[in-house]
Design a protein around this nucleic acid. Structure first.
Length: 587
RNA sequence: GCGCCCAUAGCUCAACUGGAUAGAGCAACUGCCUUCUAAGCAGUAGGUCGGGGGUUCAAGUCCCUCUGGGCGUACCA
C-alpha cells in the first residue's frame, strides 16, 4: 500500500498548494508531514482516507469544505492505482483499482517468494545483538524464553531488512552464584555425573543450586564457604578451577541444547570469566582524566547527578570490578573487535537504570559510538500470583514447559485422530509446542509485563501460534489436492476473477506485509508481525469458510483463488520465519 | 523518600504512534462437520479506556494531578 499512499500524498499536497495560492495563502504552510493517509474504519468507506482537519486552520475554512474543495480538483489526475473517490465530511476517501493492485501483489509475491516482505532499509548496517545471557548455575526458565524469543526474532527481522547482524550470548559463568552450586556439589554430589542420574546436564547443575539454598537455610556458614570458593577461584586454585570448568561445561551444554530445541542461534558466545577484568583499565584511565573520582577508602566513583542519575561505584575499595565495570569493558572490546553501527542489548526492564548508567559512562569516556547503544527493554513474565521466585520454587523451567506443551500437542493430534495424516507425531507436536510458545511470548508489546497462566495461557485455539500454523497447514493441504487436478493446476489465476469483498480485504492486508516488517524492524518490535499474521489468518479463515477455492464453479475463479491462497501461504511462511514459529505442511 | 514504567471487557492482549462507531482471543450462551483439516466459521452478551483536570477542530494515545500496582535506587549480577 505504501506505493499508493506516497503517490496519493504527493498529489494531495500539490492540490492543496494550488488551492492555497488561489486563496492568497502561503503555499509553504502546506506541510506534507501534516498529511496522513489512513485506513478507513470500515472498508465500504474506501481503501484509503485523508482527513483534512490539519489544514482547516491555515485555510480558514471548515475541514468538510476543504475536503470538498480538494475533491473538485482531485479527479483531474488520479494518482496511480486510484479507481475513484468520494468526499465524506472532512474526509477524502479513496477506492483503489482492485485488479490492478491485485495483479501487482501477485507479481511481487511470485518474484520475491521467500524474500517477500524484505527490504533494504537497514542495508549494510552492522548491528550487534546481545540476548539470553544466562547464568551457569541453573537451567533456562520462562524469563529467558521471552528474552530468547525476542532476540532471535529481532535478529531475523533486522536481517530481513538488510542489516548485517551479529548475535552474541554473554554467558555469565563466574561469580558467587556458580560457587553456590559448586559448593553443594562438592559437599553433597559424591562425584556423580548427569549421566549417572539420567539428567539433562544443566538441570543437574541446577539441582545443586537448589540443594545449596536448602543447605544454607540450616547451615549459616554455607555462605562463607561459597565465598571462600570464589576467592580460591579468583586465585586460580587448580582444584576449584577444574570443578568450576566441569560444572560450567554441564550447564552450558544443557543450555545450548535448549537453544537448539527452540531454534535460537548465536554467532558468538562470550564468557564473562574471560572478559570481566577488561573494564578496570578503562576506569583507571577515566580516573586519571578526571572523569571519575576516588573516595577516601580507595573506591572509584562516577557522579551522574548532573544528568539526573546518582553516584555510582565503579571499582570497589579492594580494587575489584563490579557489574557495570565489566559491561564497560565488554562494550569497548566488542566495538574494537567488530565496529557496529548499532548495538542492542535485549535485557529485562528491571535493568533500565543500569543501562542508562552504562551508556552515560561510555559517553563520558569519550566513545562517540555510545549514542548507538540501545537497551531493548522487555517486561517481566509474571505468574498470576506474582513474580517467579527461584527460592520459592515457582520458576517455570524452559525444558519442562516445552515438554508439557509437546505432550498437550500430541494429545491434541490423537484426540483429533490425525495420527495417520500427520505421520511424524513427535516432530509435529514439538513444532506446535514451539509455535504456541513463541507466538505467546511475542504477541504482546515487548515493553509490557505479561502474566503467564500455566493452565490457560497456552491453549491451541483462538489467537495463538497453532491457529496460524493451522491456517498454513490447511492451505498446504489444498495445494496437495491441487496436484491431483492437472487442469486446474495448469490454469493461470487472473485478478479480475476475484470479486468478493473477502478477497479484496486479503489483497490489501497482504500488500501491507512489507511495511509491517519495516515498522517492526525500525522499532525492534516483533509483536507487530505477530498481530499481523493473526489478522491474515483470521481473514483467510473467514474467506476459506465462505467461498470454495478449489471447487469454485468457474475454473477461472478457482485458479485465481488458488493464486491468492498461494500469496497468503507465502506471507505466512515468511512471517512465521521472522517469529521463529515453525511452519507445518500438515497438522 | 527519589527515579523510571504500567493501568483498556470477568481474564489475557490489540488499537496503523493524535483521527470516523475502541477491536481480538479465552471463559459464558446460540447455531454450523455427506464439499478444500471444526486447532475452524458465524452470532449473542460483555467498556464512564483507573479517577479528576487540562491542551487540541479531534485524546485510550500528549501535559498536570490523585489512586492503585511493578521495577529500580547495593562496594549483587
Amino acid at each position: 500500500m505504501v506505493v499508493f499512499k506516497e503517490q496519493l500524498k504527493q498529489r494531495i499536497v500539490q492540490i492543496l498548494k494550488e488551492k492555497a495560492k488561489q486563496k492568497g495563502i502561503d503555499p509553504e504552510g502546506v506541510r506534507e508531514e501534516n498529511l496522513v493517509v489512513e485506513n478507513p474504519p470500515k472498508s465500504d468507506l474506501g481503501d484509503l482516507a485523508i482527513p483534512f482537519f490539519p489544514f482547516a486552520r491555515s485555510f480558514r475554512m471548515p475541514p468538510a469544505a476543504l475536503s470538498a474543495l480538494v475533491g473538485e480538483s482531485f479527479g483531474e489526475g488520479l494518482p496511480l492505482g486510484v479507481e475513484r473517490y468520494n468526499v465524506v465530511g472532512p474526509y477524502l476517501n479513496i477506492f483503489l483499482k482492485r485488479p490492478f493492485v491485485t495483479e501487482l501483489l501477485f507479481q511481487k509475491v511470485r518474484q520475491e517468494g521467500d524474500r517477500f516482505g524484505s527490504s533494504d532499509i537497514l542495508r549494510s548496517k552492522k548491528i550487534m545483538l546481545e540476548f539470553s545471557s544466562p547464568n551457569t548455575n541453573k537451567p533456562l526458565h520462562l524469563g529467558h524464553l521471552r528474552n530468547d524469543a525476542l532476540g532471535e526474532s529481532v535478529a531475523r527481522i533486522l536481517r530481513f531488512s538488510g542489516a548485517v547482524v551479529r548475535t552474541v550470548d554473554l554467558i555469565n559463568d563466574r561469580g558467587i552464584h556458580i560457587c553456590k552450586s559448586m559448593l553443594a556439589y562438592k559437599e553433597l554430589g559424591g562425584g556423580r555425573t548427569p549421566e549417572d542420574e539420567g539428567m539433562k546436564s544443566d538441570h543437574f547443575v541446577g539441582k545443586y543450586y537448589v540443594l545449596y539454598n536448602e543447605l544454607a537455610k540450616r547451615d549459616p556458614e554455607a555462605e562463607d564457604r561459597a565465598r571462600a570458593l570464589l576467592v580460591k577461584w579468583e586465585e586460580g586454585d587448580p582444584e576449584v578451577r577444574s570443578l568450576w570448568e566441569k560444572m560450567n561445561r554441564w550447564a552450558v551444554e544443557g543450555i545450548k541444547r535448549t537453544y537448539e530445541r527452540t531454534g535460537i542461534h548465536f554467532d558468538q558466545f562470550t564468557f564473562e570469566s574471560e572478559v570481566y577484568l577488561k573494564g578496570k583499565e578503562e576506569i583507571l584511565k577515566g580516573l586519571s582524566q578526571g572523569i571519575f573520582y576516588r573516595e577516601a577508602d580507595g573506591s572509584i566513583w562516577v557522579n551522574l547527578e548532573d544528568i539526573g542519575l546518582d553516584r555510582k561505584v565503579l571499582l570497589r575499595s579492594d580494587g575489584t570490578s563490579i557489574y557495570v565495570t565489566q559491561d564497560i569493558g565488554t562494550a569497548i572490546s566488542r566495538y574494537n573487535d567488530w565496529p557496529f553501527d548499532t548495538m542492542i542489548y535485549v535485557v529485562a526492564s528491571e535493568q533500565n537504570y543500569h543501562f542508562k548508567v552504562l551508556f552515560s559512562i561510555l559517553e563520558r569516556l569519550g566513545y562517540g559510538w555510545a549514542k548507538n547503544l540501545y537497551h531493548l527493554s522487555y517486561g517481566m513474565v509474571n505468574l498470576p500470583e506474582g513474580k517467579m521466585k527461584s527460592r520459592e520454587g515457582t520458576v517455570v523451567d524452559a525444558d519442562d514447559l516445552l515438554d508439557e506443551l509437546a505432550e498437550m500437542a500430541r494429545e491434541e493430534i490423537r484426540g483429533k485422530e490425525r495420527e495417520e495424516e500427520v505421520g511424524n507425531i513427535e516432530e509435529t507436536a514439538e513444532k506446535i509446542a514451539l509455535g504456541a510458545l513463541h507466538y505467546y511470548l511475542l504477541q504482546p508489546s515487548p515493553s509490557k509485563d505479561m502474566v503467564f497462566n500455566p493452565r490457560e495461557s497456552l491453549s491451541f485455539t483462538g489467537n495463538t501460534g497453532p491457529y496460524i500454523q493451522y491456517t498454513g497447514a490447511r492451505i498446504c493441504s489444498m495445494m496437495r489436492k491441487l496436484e491431483g487436478m492437472p487442469r486446474l493446476k495448469e490454469r493461470q489465476g487472473e485478478p479480475k476473477h476475484l470479486e468478493t469483498e473477502e478477497e479484496w480485504e486479503l489483497v490489501k492486508l497482504l500488500f501491507d506485509f512489507p511495511s509491517v516488517v519495516e515498522l517492526s524492524a525500525s522499532t525492534y518490535n516483533p509483536s507487530l508481525v505477530a498481530n499481523y499474521l493473526y489478522e491474515i489468518s483470521k481473514s483467510f479463515s473467514r474467506y476459506y469458510h465462505e467461498h470454495p477455492i478449489l471447487y469454485a464453479e468457474d475454473p477461472q475463479v478457482a485458479a485465481s483463488r488458488v493464486e491468492l491462497s498461494r500469496c497468503v501461504l507465502q506471507v505466512l511462511r515468511n512471517g512465521m520465519y521472522l517469529l521463529n514459529i515453525p511452519f507445518l505442511e500438515v497438522m
